[in-house]
Design a protein around this nucleic acid. Sequence first.
DNA 1: GAGTCTATGTAGCAGTCGCTACATTCGTAC
DNA 2: GTACGAATGTAGCGACTGCTACATAGACTC
Lengths: 187, 187
Amino acid sequence: MIDRETRRSEVEARLAAHVLAHGLSRTSLRDLARAAGTSDRMLLYYFADKAEILGVVLARIAADMAALLDGALPSAERLAPADLLARLGAMAGTAQMRPYMELWSEIAAGAARGEAPFDAIADAIAAGFRDWADARLAVADDAARARLAALMIVAVDGAALLAPMAGGAIARDGLGALADLLARYCS
Amino acid sequence: MIDRETRRSEVEARLAAHVLAHGLSRTSLRDLARAAGTSDRMLLYYFADKAEILGVVLARIAADMAALLDGALPSAERLAPADLLARLGAMAGTAQMRPYMELWSEIAAGAARGEAPFDAIADAIAAGFRDWADARLAVADDAARARLAALMIVAVDGAALLAPMAGGAIARDGLGALADLLARYCS
DNA sequence: GAGTCTATGTAGCAGTCGCTACATTCGTAC
DNA sequence: GTACGAATGTAGCGACTGCTACATAGACTC
């Protein structure tokens, strides 16, 4: 027999892949179990209940996304606002990144209704986003940098939310207009 | 007995109020019926099935929101980008407007997964937003105005999505930073 | 080999879901 | 009054939900 913790970790990884691919709508215990190659009975052996499953899985996905972001743009180099926005916008449109953004908007919508565990996780993810941007902006003044970091996140999240609509035109035009503004501001 | 169309319209209004207040999570036929003061049996007498109910109700809510926006800021007067953003941001934070924005993020999340009827409705709402902003921006060049309108919508939607997180700080700071940028650009 | 603990299967409970068959009441036309 | 169609109630179906009681199989200790 295989060690429980090892097996649980494997299951966790498969669950994360499934949730990332299919969102939060198809997450009954039986669906999740099928995706993880086990039974609902075993899921509730590894985890206390469904809420713990979602919490653990979403936390893992958030960590994966953070690692992906860090890998794509190391915190060592700092960019001008317009450049960082361009990089962010390009990354958010990537096939690799899109599932994360779609899931993120689902989590955010759940958090808006105050549903657990989405509210806590959404808070952590949003703060992570902002810190990530703050650490990569080449802006001397602390307060100004924090505000610009917030703007980056607001714009990219808004674009992600609007990406499916009107063929992505609104998201594209909005980010483009902001990039123009930022370029003017920095020169 | 009351005329069927009259009764159906009354039910529709109550359903809209309920969905607006509670979002899409508590929308079982029995929940909806209770909120409308009728029975699930009667809902399926007025409407073909649950999908039609949601479609009709969401369309009605979207129309209400459009009317609310028009009433708050008539299309007669055109504003500078920074001013329009300030007005939009202030309105989105209103107690009257918040339920619409929360529901909007739920609809957008559903649309991102391609679920009917959210995809079609989301498209219509997003286009309405953009046209609304476009008709109120005091910018001479058509292309530039369209891009700025898209930016308004992207920013306000991003802020709405992030409003529940970190006490609203990210949304507030992001919109503030953008307002500064726009003010500088316009002067 | 008996006893014990962990891992897993089987079966099912009580509740909710969308939806429907059937029966009944009511207003109206004749 | 009677016949009829429209409106409404009652009851339930089959599928799904999260979760659990019970049984079993295997590994380990003595």
